[in-house]
Amino acid sequence: MGRRDGQVKVRGMRLEVGEIEGVLGTHPGVKQAAVVAKKDATGTKLWAYVVGEVEAGALREWLRERVPEHMVPSVYGTLEALPLTSSGKVDRAKLPALTADAMPRTHAFVPPTTELERGLTALWQEVLGVERVGLEDRFFDLGGNSLTLVRLHSRMRGLLKVEVPLAELFQYSSIAALVARVRDRSEAVDAPDEAAVEEEFAQRRALAGQRRKARQQVEAPSQEDADE
Rank of each mutant, 00 (worst) to 15 (best):
K31F: 03
K31R: 13
K31P: 00
K31T: 11
Q32R: 13
Q32H: 11
A33C: 13
A33R: 02
A33T: 03
A33L: 10
A33I: 02
A33E: 03
A33S: 12
A33G: 11
A34D: 02
A34H: 00
V35D: 04
V35P: 02
V35C: 11
V35Y: 05
V36D: 01
V36E: 09
V36R: 11
V36T: 14
A37T: 12
A37E: 04
A37L: 05
A37C: 11
K38C: 12
K38M: 07
K38L: 14
K38E: 15
K38G: 06
K39D: 13
K39P: 00
K39G: 11
K39S: 10
D40G: 09
D40T: 09
A41F: 06
A41R: 13
A41G: 13
T42H: 04
T42M: 09
T42N: 11
G43S: 10
G43C: 06
G43D: 02
G43N: 08
G43F: 08
T44A: 10
T44H: 03
T44R: 09
T44E: 04
T44V: 14
K45T: 02
K45M: 15
K45E: 11
K45R: 13
L46H: 04
L46R: 06
L46A: 08
L46V: 09
W47G: 01
W47A: 06
W47I: 06
W47N: 07
W47M: 10
A48P: 00
A48N: 01
Y49I: 04
Y49L: 04
Y49M: 07
Y49Q: 07
V50T: 06
V50C: 02
V50Y: 00
V50G: 00
V50N: 01
V51Q: 01
V51S: 06
V51Y: 03
V51L: 04
V51F: 01
V51A: 02
V51M: 03
G52C: 07
G52H: 01
G52K: 02
G52T: 05
E53F: 03
E53P: 01
E53W: 01
E53R: 13
V54C: 08
V54P: 05
V54F: 08
V54N: 06
V54H: 06
E55N: 08
E55I: 03
E55W: 02
E55Q: 11
E55P: 00
A56P: 10
A56I: 13
A56Y: 08
A56D: 09
G57L: 08
A58R: 12
A58Q: 15
A58M: 10
A58W: 06
L59G: 02
L59K: 05
L59T: 01
R60D: 08
R60G: 10
R60A: 14
R60C: 14
R60S: 11
W62I: 08
W62V: 10
W62R: 09
L63A: 10
L63N: 05
L63I: 04
L63T: 05
R64M: 05
R64V: 00
R64N: 05
R64Y: 01
R64A: 12
E65Y: 06
E65A: 15
E65S: 14
E65R: 15
E65D: 14
R66I: 15
R66G: 13
R66C: 14
V67A: 10
V67K: 05
V67L: 11
V67S: 14
P68M: 12
E69D: 12
E69R: 14
E69P: 03
H70V: 09
H70F: 15
M71W: 05
M71D: 02
M71K: 11
V72E: 08
P73W: 08
P73A: 14
P73N: 11
P73G: 09
P73I: 07
